[in-house]
Nucleic acid binder design. Structure first.
Length: 271
DNA sequence: CGTATTTGACCTCG
DNA sequence: CGAGGTCAAATACG
């Protein structure tokens, strides 16, 4: 699978090269370039993800079973130690946490577990990307209601999405988790209604794209610029949803794969 | 009837 | 051993 990804990326880059060398741009070549660049990036991301997590479930790389125990954990700089003849299971997944009043984030998640957490009032829900088996996307998230403010969720994202972005698509299955994690179902119901209302509100075609953008991505692009270089891929950062009455996206933290820790607070206000 | 959720058992790691 | 994470059979959903 990893080889396939790399070959795809190589092919895209091969097709890209003449397009960039040719000074004469025929129409449509720009979007073609964009498409190819996207493919190249996607292939790299996917391949890297596979590389760093391939023995996570023991079934990748030809299904050779790799024992999880009795292996060196990890060397300095967090990189896996590769013993001769051994593939070392390593989960060096990027992780970031947000606190928000919604759990929606435009990706399709599937719940696979829930646990009571010691000293925590509320259970923690475990979600994986619905495309785990279609596209091998290993992204995961954990959702837990905060003690202090029960209608806020602390959401921890683990691993980047390697599946095709589901931005601006299907929203029917993505927020069911709310109903379950909810103490106050009415509140979530209201939020959900607002969510749909806003989504359907664009008046005319001219404003449609911008309306969507404003709604789905109320965090301004520039807010992320400072940490741009530390992130694996801006596409994979959580896109937040916020209703216009609330400015409650409170806290972001990010942990890169090279033990680069960033922790900062933002008071992002959504118009 | 296919897909998502629920939930207790199971697994892993400290 | 126990806390947290995952699996999977049963069940609910649409």
């Amino acid at each position: 699978m990893m080889i396939r990804e790399l070959i795809q990326g190589q092919e895209a880059a091969t097709q890209l090269k003449p397009l960039l060398q040719n000074p004469i741009r025929v129409d449509g070549s720009l979007s073609r370039v964009d498409e190819l660049v996207t493919n190249v990036l996607r292939s790299f991301t996917q391949a890297l993800s596979l590389l760093s997590s391939f023995s996570y479930d023991g079934e990748t790389l030809g299904g050779d079973e790799v024992a999880h125990r009795d292996l060196p954990s990890s060397g300095e700089n967090g990189l896996p130690v590769v013993a001769p003849g051994n593939y070392v299971p390593r989960k060096t997944a990027q992780t970031w946490t947000t606190v928000s009043h919604t759990t929606d984030d435009t990706h399709a998640w599937r719940k696979y577990g829930q646990k009571g957490i010691l000293n925590s009032k509320f259970p923690r829900g475990y979600f994986r990307c619905t495309k785990k088996y279609d596209e091998g996307c290993m992204a995961t998230k954990q959702v837990q209601r905060t003690q202090e403010n029960p209608d806020m969720f602390e959401i921890t994202y683990i691993g980047i999405h390697t599946c095709k972005a589901t931005l601006l698509t299907d929203t029917t299955n993505t927020n069911r988790e709310e109903s379950y994690l909810a103490n106050n179902k009415e509140t979530n119901h209201l939020i959900k209604q607002e969510y749909y209302l806003k989504e359907e509100s664009p008046s005319d075609d001219a404003n449609k794209v911008e309306d969507h953008h404003k709604f789905y991505d109320p965090i301004q692009w520039s807010d992320w610029e400072d940490i741009e270089q530390s992130k694996p891929n801006i596409i994979n950062m959580p896109l937040k949803l916020a209703s216009s009455d609330n400015a409650d996206i409170v806290h972001y933290s990010y942990t890169g794969s090279q033990s680069l820790d960033i922790d900062f607070f933002g008071g992002f206000r959504s118009f």
